[in-house]
């Protein structure tokens, strides 16, 4: 009966393996949970469509409305860029964040506290690390879907100027990983639905102020540092660089920042699930 799993073994980067801290079951990571979510979501596909459309609506409104009023702005490397080109990657970063946060907070909280999905899973060979990894993988696969759709639309609008834009796809997945990790870790500390006000409190200002609609240079230096510390700013910087073809070693910093955030999230989430459910 135990001959099957070996063939399905999913090798994980060592760092991620360590982040799961012994919380893994039979080495298939969170794939079974991803499958479970995909089945459950079949009935909720409308949410997926809505999530995919959200950044596109923003994009169109910018292109039709704001873009006509606002002239070129200073892009990465000091180069002037059209306003739509400037805002588009930030919208993608934001929807990657929103999708990942939704899946890793509201939906995880429901499964953790009410639906007992993880209680059922933990009675099988799956461990708390598999649960954390499964949910985060699911959340970031949504990020992947958003990114691909968004890029297709950008291409259709003739807004693609650089082959670097393709790198925006894995970058979006990384952004999904970072936010899903933090989101899930935070969710394990939530006591009731009221605590979810904090999720809005964290994401909405980030959306408004993380250089989504104007460059960092409009802020005084003190505020610039604060903004630079937010994960969404790092995500926007990364996607903006790739989509405008302005790529430099500084972007490695953003990659590292987001990767560490995601790994820390997986680590905390899997430890917390162990504490909450395996008493």
């Amino acid at each position: 009966m135990s001959s099957g799993p070996a063939t399905l073994r999913m090798p994980l980067p060592g760092l991620l393996g360590r982040a799961l801290a012994g919380g893994r079951g039979h080495g298939r990571g969170g794939l079974p949970l991803v499958e479970r979510n995909a089945r459950a979501y079949r009935h909720l596909w409308i949410l997926l469509v809505a999530g995919t459309l959200e950044p596109l609506f923003y994009l169109l409104s910018v292109r039709i409305g704001l873009g006509a009023l606002v002239g070129p702005v200073t892009g990465p490397g000091g180069r002037p860029v059209g306003y739509t080109e400037f805002v588009a990657p930030a919208l993608l970063a934001t929807s990657s964040m929103n999708g990942a946060v939704y899946d890793s907070t509201f939906s995880v909280f429901h499964k953790l506290k009410y639906a007992k999905v993880y209680d059922a899973a933990l009675a099988t060979p799956l461990g708390p690390g598999d649960v954390a990894l499964g949910e985060i993988t699911w959340a970031l696969s949504r990020g992947l879907l958003y990114a691909v759709t968004f890029l297709l639309v950008l291409a259709a609008l003739g807004l693609i100027h650089s082959a670097w834009l393709l790198v925006a796809v894995p970058a979006s997945v990384l952004i999904g990983f970072a936010f899903a990790g933090v989101g899930m870790a935070a969710t394990t500390y939530m006591r009731s639905w009221k605590d979810f006000d904090f999720v809005i409190l964290a994401t909405l200002p980030m959306f408004l102020f993380s250089t989504t609609f104007y460059p960092l240079s409009v802020y005084p230096r003190g505020l610039q540092i604060v903004v630079e510390c937010t994960p969404l700013y790092q995500a926007v910087t990364l996607l903006r660089g790739f989509s405008l073809g302005v790529v430099g070693p500084a972007m490695l910093g953003s990659v590292a920042y987001l990767a560490v955030l995601g790994l820390a999230g997986v680590y905390v989430a899997s430890r917390r699930i162990r504490r909450l459910l395996l008493k």
Partner: peptide, 9 residues
């Protein structure tokens, strides 16, 4: 089906 997948079947 899903529970069986948790077992890797």
């Amino acid at each position: 089906l899903v529970y069986g997948r948790y077992f890797g079947l």
